[in-house]
Design a protein around this nucleic acid. Structure first.
Lengths: 239, 239
DNA sequence: CCAAAAACATGACTTTTATCATGTTTTGCT
DNA sequence: AGCAAAACATGATAAAAGTCATGTTTTTGG
């Protein structure tokens, strides 16, 4: 069998990212089915897994790296819906609703990503009701999260949303340091703006303000959280 | 068995709203299970089915009327997530993700609504894989719709969102008239603002503008769509 | 390693939208 | 019917955020 130069040898059975994923409690046999026709490829920053409006052919499972999932607006600006990390699946939602992709997915940190053809995935899904239930639960949870984000964007100011986004990033990517947590994700200011739902300049300005107020520290792209409480207050969590 | 004064006798087998609902192709036996412990009650405008933060005990199935589903913001303003109509279920999403309700549901037009206890609903769900699949598909679709709304709110102006909301309402509640379609739903300006995600005054002002531009007509709460193309243009659908 | 491109940063200005104030109309209730 | 409350409407003003212009720094590719 021909091999693409950057084809990687990642078997589901031994995947380190599996632990936290929905695949966590499939049995050996099922993992073998998953592995049988799958391919795993290295992706560079900026490469796109799939585009909005195209037909899903299978699911992407992230082994390493980070991927932004976003919709393109008529003004050319992206709205980032979420950032996927190792263990996450991508593309199964559209596959299950039998629709075209509603969003695009592009790598933002060098990644290793497996592709599992639709048919293999559906085979597992139909033969394992517990897996199906688990996925259902996950989708229901996701819907709740998305509703939360909608309400936040509709009702909070850009300042509040930025503060709350920084806190959310800290929860997910925060690395314990001495006293301060460094957020271990290389987001451009533009990407950050596209998560928050605002203009790049506005994010840059607010970050400077947060910095001079001593709430965060900036080391290039990396954001250091210096004063969690102040950020929580800024995000208006309890008001 | 004691009967509450406004208890209604609605049997799932003969429910007119069933046709368009997820219950459409359950068999007689399953419908009997559904009916067995269910109650169906009349609700007046303003009555609340459930509150954000409480525990789901079953699902609500709308037989007649309209219900707004919304989240409360810290500023006291509601963000309406969607409006449910006859045939829709409410509350199953939180039940399946085993979380508290993430939103509240309040009647906006006099309604008849059935309540099916959690256990009965889960019985059907576990015994009928096709029904489960259908629901999964619906949730996946809903998630796509919600992502769409998020991107719209994040990227479009209030003016564009109002135009697009009016068009959406026309699709769902439009009644064919002579030349113009009347939107058959009695939304207060405040509710409309809470769908669009803006202040009530802003909606009122923009509606006046749309009216003097000849795009819509206003007869009390009812909105008449006079020029669909102009609204589509205003909503910036193709730009 | 160097040049070009991309990302970051800041100022000036404009537009959009929220907020506050006030008055009018409609609705609901007894 | 009549009164109170809610909803609707409009103006004035302020605040928030977007846009444009321009310069600096960082990153990237040959």
């Amino acid at each position: 069998m021909a091999r693409r130069s950057n084809q990687l040898d990642v078997q589901c059975q031994f995947c380190k990212a599996k632990g936290g994923s929905h695949f966590a409690d499939l049995n050996e046999e099922e993992l073998t089915i998953l592995s049988s026709h799958k391919s795993c490829v290295g992706y560079k920053k900026g490469q796109t897994l799939f585009y909005e409006g195209t037909r899903p052919m299978g699911i992407f499972c992230i082994n390493r790296g980070k991927v932004k999932v976003y919709k393109m607006g008529s003004n050319g600006r992206e709205q980032i819906l979420f950032i996927a990390q190792p263990g996450d699946f991508l593309g199964y939602r559209s596959m299950l609703s039998e629709e075209f992709y509603g969003a695009s997915a592009t790598v933002i940190e060098p990644a290793a990503i497996c592709f599992i053809p639709k048919s293999d995935f559906l085979t597992i899904l139909n033969s394992n009701p517990r897996f199906f239930s688990k996925l259902m639960k996950a989708v229901c949870h996701e819907l709740g999260v998305m509703e939360d984000k909608l309400a936040q964007i509709a009702q909070k100011s850009v300042r509040e949303r930025l503060a709350s986004t920084i806190l959310m990033l800290k929860e997910t990517y925060g690395m314990e340091g001495e006293g301060s947590d460094v957020i271990d994700i290389a987001l451009s200011r533009e990407d950050l703006a596209n998560i928050v739902g605002t203009a790049t300049e506005t994010v840059i300005r607010l970050l400077s303000e947060f910095k001079s107020d001593g709430m965060i520290g900036l080391e290039g792209k990396r954001i250091k959280v210096l004063d969690v409480n102040a950020l929580v207050h800024e995000a208006d969590f309890y008001a």
